[in-house]
């Protein structure tokens, strides 16, 4: 073996080596780029993924439109019914595309409903109207706002109850942790939705009840994940150092734990949001969520579904908006996950 391993010796003379100028040798040791903070790195990785960026822009746009519309679209404009304009399809001036020019397919032929019903020439609805002549576009914007409020509320409870519960449970450890984990274990093996539905039956259906329902049901996964991460973080040297220097638990939590938990917290929040949006739409769809005079995407879907055969646009528009909202939040969540945890992007 030893004989075989011996490679033929190369004959090296002094000329084989070339001396480098001094500064070049040093520059090899230099750190080329500016050193980036963790968040800067995350931002760079996030920007690389188109789907995440586009979703982020869509989400921001929806938030701006939905909340910016409040002065024009609110509870008082929502209840205004105009029976003379009932069930009109979409009409956008200047667009001559069947389905968007006031025409709808009836018995296989495109009929201009606006002309048929003697609607004034300058009157148009960009997404049509519902069975009471209310502008569908307005109702969809309002419904989107409700969905976004629900999303914000779910995120809020995730960030407060979920994070605090998880950090305390993980940090305290021992008996406290044990009890808190048993509570979560029991609460999460109760089918949340069923209890929440009962709660909605007892309380008055509406946004407030849905918010309470979300408060009860949304934070458990977050609490579990934060606890697991806290358990491993609290044995790190820097936490030990902070402890031995006499930092209070509160300060350690705020200065050392939360920043290091931030990636998990953000990712989990992004996953809570679409399920909360689905939840509201679902409850409203079966008729125990948001109720008149307010409206939400779930309510619109339920109304649209009844007339789907004849007026498909009444269901398609809210359905598309809801799906886009869900897809955007899901993709944004994926994008953030890959940005925070590059290992997951493979």
């Amino acid at each position: 073996m030893a004989e075989e391993a011996q490679a033929p010796q190369a004959k090296l003379t002094e000329n084989a080596f070339e001396g480098l100028p001094k500064d070049e040798a040093q520059s090899a040791e230099n750190i080329a780029g500016p050193s980036l903070s963790y968040m800067q790195n995350v931002w760079i990785r996030f920007k690389q993924k188109t789907s995440g960026v586009v979703s982020g822009i869509i989400v921001i746009l929806m938030i701006v439109i939905a909340f910016g519309s409040t002065p024009f679209i609110n509870k008082s404009t929502l209840v205004k019914s105009q029976p003379q304009y009932a069930n009109l399809p979409a009409k956008i001036p200047g667009v001559n595309l069947n389905g968007l020019n006031g025409k709808i397919k009836q018995n296989g032929e495109w009929v201009d409903v606006y002309e048929k019903n003697n609607i004034p020439k300058d009157k148009y609805f960009i997404a049509g109207t519902d069975y009471l002549g209310r502008s569908l576009a307005q109702r969809i914007v309002y419904g989107t706002k409700i969905s976004l409020i629900v999303a914000l509320v779910a995120a809020f409870f995730d960030l407060t109850i979920g994070v605090i519960y998880g950090v305390i449970s993980g940090w305290k450890g021992g008996a406290v942790d044990n009890v808190m984990q048993r509570i979560i274990e029991i609460v999460s093996s109760v089918p949340n939705l069923v209890i929440v539905i009962l709660l909605l039956v007892v309380l008055k259906p509406g946004l407030k009840s849905i918010i309470i329902a979300i408060a009860i049901s949304s934070w458990m996964t977050m609490a579990r994940q934060v606890r697991a991460e806290t358990l491993s973080l609290k044995n790190q040297e820097y936490v030990l150092a902070a402890r031995s220097l006499g930092e209070s638990s509160w300060k350690i939590a705020m200065k050392h734990l939360i920043p290091n938990l931030s990636s998990i917290i953000i990712i989990q929040t992004m996953y809570t949001i679409p399920s909360a949006i689905f939840f509201e739409a679902f409850l409203s769809f079966i008729g125990i969520g948001i109720s008149a005079p307010e409206t939400s995407l779930g309510v619109l879907l339920n109304e649209g579904q009844k007339n789907f055969q004849f007026l498909p646009y009444q269901m398609w528009y809210p359905a598309v908006v809801l799906c886009v909202l869900m897809i955007a939040f899901n993709l944004l969540g994926d994008g953030l996950r890959d940005a925070f945890d590059p290992k997951s992007a493979r």
């Binding site: 679409p274 689905f278 739409a281 679902f282 769809f285 879907l301 809801l322 799906c323 869900m326 897809i327 899901n330 993709l331 994926d334």
Partner: peptide, 9 residues
């Protein structure tokens, strides 16, 4: 992603 996002109803 679509399957996850489109509500089943």
């Amino acid at each position: 992603i679509i399957g996850k996002s489109v509500p089943n109803f």
